[in-house]
């Protein structure tokens, strides 16, 4: 090291002390072109909406399937009620008196069961019932 200041001016030192893998510069153009000019995914509204659309479709399919299953497994179909109502309506139109009598019968019978008094019961048995039955009944209510 006689003169270190001059050493940097030696031509040999100005050569790059580095090397590159074999064929690096020969393939540089192709490698860079592949990386830089590769087609990019451009913004597309269809691509953005595709997942949301698929989700909505799945939702409707599930709802549809669920509705179908409920509909198929329902043991009392709605139609049977409407058929029954139609038959009743048809009979009622043919003879309305039957329905009026039936209504009166059930209503009166029900009211009668509520208004029953002890005197009614005595009258009932007095009209021809056995004495034994009467005594048993009276013993039970005392």
């Amino acid at each position: 090291m006689e003169n270190e200041k001059d050493i940097l001016q030696q031509e040999s030192l100005r050569e790059m002390p580095f090397s590159v893998p074999q064929g690096y510069f020969a393939s540089l153009e192709d490698n860079l072109r592949d990386k830089v000019l590769a087609p990019k995914n451009k913004f597309n509204i269809v691509n953005v909406l595709k997942p949301a659309f698929a989700l909505a479709c799945s939702f409707f399919v599930i709802i549809g399937l669920g509705y179908g299953v409920i509909k198929l497994t329902n043991s009392v179909p709605q139609e049977s009620f409407s058929e029954y109502d139609a038959i009743v309506a048809q009979v009622e139109s043919m003879n309305p008196a039957i329905f009026e009598q039936l209504d009166d019968f059930y209503v009166e019978d029900y009211n009668a069961s509520l208004d029953l008094t002890i005197d009614d019961i005595i009258d009932y048995f007095a009209s021809g019932a056995d004495d034994d039955v009467l005594y048993q009944y009276l013993a039970s209510i005392e």
Partner: peptide
């Protein structure tokens, strides 16, 4: 493509050495 190739051919190696050093 041609523009890019020329851009790399002309400056690729020089830029590489600039970065490498």
């Amino acid at each position: 493509n041609q523009a890019f190739n020329l851009l790399v051919r002309e400056y690729g190696e020089k830029l590489y050495w600039h970065i490498r050093t």
